[in-house]
Computed example of a mutant assay.
Amino acid sequence: MPDPLPVQQPRVGCGAVIQRADGAVLLVQRGRQPEQGYWGLPGGKVDWMEKVEDTVVREVQEETGLRVAVERLLCVVDHFEPALGQHWVAPVYLARTLDDAQAMPLEPEAILAVAWFHPDALPAPLTRSATEGLARLSSQG
């Protein structure tokens, strides 16, 4: 009997738009596929039986050292990577920092760099989630 085809299911990841009082947003440069080398939102894969909002808080702290609180959902991004055989569904949240800690890349294999950028001086290329999340933030004022 031939091997069954692999099960193709969407995966769930999430991201956080973290904005300072001066309007700058925190972005991370991705060290892994999909979108390796692109600048995106801190966040990551949702674990089994974990609330998405809890994933946002956990992933931001694991990746950058920042403690955050989720404020609201900005959008949900559908990200298709046919060449990698991946389909991601990614809720993007607005979050705020809870202290004055400095953001730093704490997962060097996954995050190449961490930096704050003003909306009129964003780096390129941006991930799909960052592009859509920042556009939604801008449109909501």
Rank of each mutant, 00 (worst) to 15 (best):
V25K: 03
D99T: 01
P6R: 09
R32F: 01
P42H: 05
P2D: 12
A103W: 04
A121H: 15
Y38S: 12
V77A: 07
V114N: 00
L134N: 01
D99V: 02
L73N: 07
P105W: 06
Q61K: 14
R72Q: 10
A115G: 11
V52W: 10
G13E: 11
G40L: 00
K51P: 13
L41F: 07
V7M: 10
A21D: 10
E53T: 14
V12P: 01
P34A: 03
G31F: 01
C14Y: 06
D99Q: 05
P119H: 08
T97E: 12
V17R: 01
S138F: 09
L5G: 12
V114A: 12
E50Q: 15
L112P: 05
P34M: 00
V60W: 05
L84P: 02
Q29D: 03
A121P: 08
E63K: 11
E71H: 00
V60F: 04
D47W: 14
Q19D: 03
V114P: 07
A21E: 10
G13D: 05
L112T: 07
Q140D: 01
D99I: 01
A16T: 01
P82D: 07
L84M: 10
R67H: 10
V60H: 06
V7T: 14
C75H: 07
A83L: 12
Y38K: 06
D78L: 15
W48E: 14
E35I: 02
R67F: 05
D3H: 13
P42S: 06
V89L: 14
P108A: 10
R58W: 09
Q33A: 10
T97M: 12
W39Y: 09
A90P: 02
H118M: 12
I111M: 11
L73Y: 05
A103S: 08
G31M: 01
A95Y: 08
R11E: 12
M49Y: 15
L5Q: 14
V46N: 08
M49D: 14
V28L: 06
V60C: 08
R96K: 13
G15S: 06
I18L: 03
R11C: 06
L26A: 04
G65K: 00
T97Y: 05
M49W: 15
E62T: 07
W88M: 11
Q9G: 09
V60P: 04
S129F: 10
P10R: 10
A101Y: 08
Q33V: 02
Q86V: 15
D120P: 07
L122I: 09
A69K: 08
L41C: 11
Q8E: 12
L27E: 04
D22E: 12
A130W: 02
Y93M: 06
P42F: 00
P4M: 09
A121E: 14
L26F: 00
M49G: 14
G23E: 10
A95T: 08
E63M: 08
M49Q: 15
L134Q: 03
E53Q: 14
D54R: 13
A113N: 13
K51C: 15
W116V: 04
C75P: 00
V70K: 00
E50N: 15
A16W: 02
A103I: 04
W39Q: 03
P105Y: 08
P91K: 03
A124F: 10
A130V: 02
A124G: 11
E62S: 11
D47K: 15
